[in-house]
């Protein structure tokens, strides 16, 4: 990274299994964004588009708790089709015997894009009680801060802000002065 490159914003991933309301997200997400965070949402039940539009989210993805019986890209290979069907049935059986939290965790783990979002997260936030379990599992795996509810995440960002601010400021100062040296 060049000395004056801005530090990567803190990436906060909100995980929800119960559909949130706009009020539940509007003020807290704005507060997260105001603190310079990049906010992504991973929601089981995607609320109506108008709920998420204009919130300032940097992205959202649906968390499919049960794998669809119709694969997005059907294959012609009979072996592959057989394997897909078997996997689906096994997962379905597992899911039937599991709680929503466990299913949400499995769904996130088997979806590469969700996995990538969670892997790159700096802070994980469970929006509801059911989402605590997947967040707990991913937080333990990645050793990153994880909270139940956005207010606690905001407090965490506030507490961590001075360190990040100073790092950024030190880099900026260095860069500016280095340029002054070069330009004479």
């Amino acid at each position: 990274m060049s000395p004056d490159a801005a530090p990567r914003p803190v990436r906060v991933v909100l995980v929800g299994v119960v559909a949130p309301t706009r009020t539940a997200l509007e003020i807290p997400v704005a507060a997260l964004v105001a603190r310079g965070a990049e906010v992504l949402a991973l929601l089981h039940t995607l609320p109506e588009a108008r709920v998420l539009t204009g919130l300032g989210l940097h992205g959202h993805r649906r968390l499919v708790l049960t794998r669809s019986s119709r694969p997005a890209a059907p294959t012609r290979s009979p072996v592959r089709r057989l394997l897909d069907a078997g996997t689906y049935r096994a997962l379905r059986l597992l899911d039937l015997r599991s709680s929503a939290g466990v299913r949400a965790f499995r769904a996130a783990r088997r979806d590469p894009q969700s996995r990538a979002v969670l892997r790159d997260a700096d802070v994980l936030v469970a929006l509801d009680r059911v989402a605590v379990y997947p967040v707990w599992r991913f937080a333990r795996a990645g050793r990153r801060p994880a909270f139940y509810g956005i207010p606690a995440a905001l407090r965490h960002l506030d507490a961590a802000a001075p360190a990040r601010r100073h790092e950024a400021r030190a880099r900026r100062t260095t860069g500016r002065e280095a340029r002054q040296e070069v330009s004479g």
Binding site: G101, A139, F147, Y148
Partner: peptide, 16 residues
Amino acid sequence: DPDVRGYSWFRARHPA
């Protein structure tokens, strides 16, 4: 307590 990392398995798995 909002710090999920500090939860026990039982608390995370069966919050209710």
